[in-house]
Write a protein that binds this DNA or RNA. Structure first.
Lengths: 195, 195
DNA sequence: GTCTATATTGAGATAGAC
DNA sequence: GTCTATCTCAATATAGAC
C-alpha cells in the first residue's frame, strides 16, 4: 500500500466525490473507507472524524479561490471587466474541483449544524467581500445601476455562477469560458434584445 | 383535541416548518410529533411514513404553482411581460409558502434518494415547460437574445427566483414586487448602465 | 386517536491485537 | 497503518393497551 501522504489524499478525494454525489450526511464512513480501499476503523488513524475530512476539503477549496481572486484584483481592471474575470475564475475553479464546489454550494446547512461553519466562515466572508467591493466600485463609477441593491445583485450573480458551475448533467457541456460569457452577457447587458 | 382534519393539517404545517429550517433528514418524527402536540407513535395513525408528509407538502405546493402559472399564460401577454409575471407569481407563492418553497428548492437530493422524486416529477416537469415555452416564444419573436441557450437562461432565472424568494434572512425584507422588479430588470435589461 | 413500550436498523466512533 | 470486534446512540417504525 502507498505511503501515508498518498492514502490521506486518496481518502480526501474519495470523500469529496461521495459527499458531492450523495451529500455529506448520506455518505457513511464505511463507504469512504471502501472507496479508499481500507476498513472504516482505519480511517480514524488519518482523521479524527468525518467532519475533519469535510473541513480539509473546504479549506483547500477556499484557499484556492481566495488566492485566484487576489490575482484578479491585482490586474487592475475596470468594474465590468473585473466582474467578468471573477465569473470566469470561479467557473474555472468549479470545473477543476467540481466536488469541493458542490460542497461549498450545497452543504451550507450541514456546515452550520456540525459547528464546522465557523472554521470556514472567514474564507467565505473574504470571498463575498471581493465580489461586493467590485460591484460597489462599479456603482460608484456609474458603470452599474444605482437602483438595485448591490447585495441583492451579488446574491443573484453568485448563485448563477456556482449553480451553473455544478458540472454534471444539464449544463450541456459548456466550457467555463462559454458559461462565463453567457452569464456575464445576461447579468450585465440583459437577455432582452432592445431592438 | 381538535378533530382529525385539523390534526392532520397541524402535522403538515409543523413538518413543513421543521423541514425547511433544519432539513428533512435532520428533522426527526419525534420533533414533528412534539410540534404537533402528540407522541411519535401517534403520527403513524395519520401518515404511513415521514416521506408521506413530505409528499403531501410538495404536491400541494406544485398544485398551487401550476394553477397560478396557467392563469398567467391565459392572460395573453407578450414574452417579456409573461416572464415578468412568472417571476412575480413565483415570488408571491414563495412568500405565502416559504417552507414548501424551501423544500422544493433545497431537498432535491433527498427526494431522489427517497424514491419520492417520481411522485412529484410530473409537476416539476410541467413547471419547467411553462418557463421554457415563454422563453422560446420570446426568442422566436426576436424579443430575447438568440445567442444564449434558452435552457441555460431558464436555469439561471429559475435559480434566481427561487433562491431569492427563500425569505428568512439576507433578502433585506424586500416585498415580492420589489424582488420581481429587480430580478426582471437585471435579467432582461442588465446591470450595466450603458450610458 | 393517542399512549407506552420496544423492535430494528444504521450510523460514527473506539479499543486493542497484529 | 490496518484489521477485528464492538460500543453507543439515535432514528424510523410497529404492536397492542386504553
Amino acid at each position: 500500500m502507498p505511503d501515508t501522504q498518498d492514502r490521506r489524499e486518496l481518502i480526501v478525494a474519495a470523500s469529496a466525490e461521495l459527499f458531492a454525489r450523495k451529500g455529506i450526511r448520506s455518505t457513511t464512513v464505511r463507504e469512504i473507507a471502501d472507496a479508499a480501499g481500507i476498513l472504516s476503523g482505519s480511517l480514524y488513524h488519518h482523521f479524527a472524524s468525518k467532519d475533519d475530512i469535510v473541513q480539509e476539503i473546504l479549506l483547500g477549496f477556499l484557499d484556492a479561490l481566495t488566492s485566484r481572486y487576489a490575482a484578479v484584483l491585482d490586474a487592475g481592471m475596470d468594474p465590468a471587466q473585473a466582474l467578468r474575470a471573477l465569473v470566469l475564475t470561479s467557473l474555472q475553479l468549479a470545473k477543476e474541483r467540481p466536488d469541493a464546489t458542490a460542497l461549498y454550494q450545497n452543504e451550507l446547512r450541514y456546515l452550520r449544524e456540525s459547528q464546522l461553519f465557523k472554521e470556514v466562515e472567514a474564507g467565505a466572508v473574504q470571498v463575498q467581500r471581493v465580489w461586493l467591493d467590485v460591484i460597489e466600485r462599479g456603482v460608484a463609477a456609474g458603470d452599474f445601476r444605482a437602483d438595485i441593491d448591490p447585495r441583492l445583485f451579488h446574491r443573484l450573480i453568485r448563485d448563477a455562477v456556482w449553480l451553473s458551475g455544478r458540472g454534471r448533467r444539464g449544463d450541456g457541456g459548456y466550457s467555463a469560458e462559454q458559461l462565463a460569457d453567457a452569464i456575464s452577457a445576461i447579468f450585465l447587458d440583459g437577455y432582452a434584445t432592445h431592438a
